[in-house]
């Protein structure tokens, strides 16, 4: 892939070794995140989006393990770092916003302490100074009167405000990269809009590169510069956003887009497409989308298609070019 990205995943494999078999949650993911850009990742539930993100910070819970691949942060492979070096990356180079703001904040620590902690851990600051910075950042993400709310505990905050706190927590270390795993799924629609606006602002103000995971194609269209579509633990298509929406090259992307309602009909969440996703513990040797694919050929059953360039900056993993005949 072109230019030198801030973050690139090469052939990342994260497996869960469960009693009922090895679930290949992430099975050879390749991705690039370019400086100052927003990368959207979409895919249906269980396609491995969250596990990919957790892998980047090496936060995969047992029985999961990263078994292969590289995670290059400006050329440095995160998988080779010592625990100590890794901690320097977490929070400082890469900030993370988790999906569920209700459970992701520590109920026993005040908001101020939690937000300021990132600074305390990474920088030589007194608690007072850190708290002052925390108040500034909280103010910036839209918590009014933040200085007076530092001592409050999370249960006093609404879901939307907690998500802002989470975002402040990820931003305060001034990371190069912000990873947001469905930051708006748990929020209602008006708050969603506010939080997204916040992300746009962040991109402008902080100059961070963002990985944005979502189920909502509308959000992707509005926010992302590039989109990666994941299916069964793999990236099946990667392209600039506009290109992806206008010229999809993977049948799965096509199916996703087909479920989009016309503009004005509201609700851009991914609609289920016919068929069921494959069992990750028993992936077929060929293409994982075979069963659900209207274009499949004999060859698809025998060999899994690799991610190949299909246009300028456009990659897809499919043996069939269904656009050819048109």
């Amino acid at each position: 892939m072109p230019e030198s990205p801030v973050l690139s995943l090469e052939n990342l494999k994260t497996y869960f070794f469960t009693r009922s078999g090895t679930a290949k949650a992430v099975d050879g993911v390749c991705l690039d995140l370019r400086k100052g850009e927003t990368l959207g990742i979409v895919g249906e539930s269980g396609s491995g989006k969250s596990v990919t993100c957790l892998s980047i910070l090496r936060l995969v819970p047992p029985p999961g393990r990263i078994v292969d691949g590289k995670i290059l942060l400006e050329g440095r492979n995160l998988l080779e770092l010592s625990k100590r070096e890794l901690r320097q990356v977490r929070g400082k180079q890469i900030g993370m916003v988790f999906q569920d703001p209700m459970t992701s904040l520590n109920p026993f620590l005040s908001i101020g302490d939690q937000v300021a902690e990132t600074l305390l851990v990474h920088e030589q600051l007194s608690r007072r100074q850190a708290l002052r910075r925390a108040a500034e950042v909280l103010e910036k993400v839209g918590i009014s009167d933040a200085a007076n709310r530092l001592a409050d505990y999370p249960h006093r905050f609404s879901g939307g405000m907690r998500q802002r706190v989470m975002i402040a927590m990820a931003l305060i270390g001034n990371p190069k990269i912000l990873i947001a795993d469905e930051p708006t799924t748990a929020l209602d629609v008006t708050i969603q809009a506010q939080v997204l606006e916040l992300f746009r602002q962040i991109k402008a103000d902080f100059g961070a590169s963002i990985i944005l995971i979502t189920h909502n194609l509308g959000i992707v269209a509005g926010m992302a510069d590039h989109v990666a579509v994941m299916y069964a633990g793999r990236v099946v298509e990667y392209a600039p956003t506009e290109e992806m929406f206008s010229r999809p090259r993977h049948p799965y992307t096509l199916a996703l887009l087909a479920t989009l309602p016309r503009p004005g009909e509201g609700g851009n969440d991914l609609q289920p497409i016919p068929g069921t996703p494959p069992d990750l513990t028993r992936l077929p040797p060929g293409c994982a989308f075979y069963d659900r694919c209207p274009f499949h050929e004999q060859h698809c059953l025998e060999e899994a298609p690799p991610l190949l360039p299909v246009g300028k900056d456009h990659w897809a993993s499919c043996w069939v070019d269904f656009t050819a005949g048109r």
Binding site: L59, P61, G91, F98, T103, L105, N106, T118, V121
Partner: peptide, 12 residues
Amino acid sequence: DYIRTARAKGVG
């Protein structure tokens, strides 16, 4: 989850 959040912040 909040333990994971703390880890993601680089807490030792």
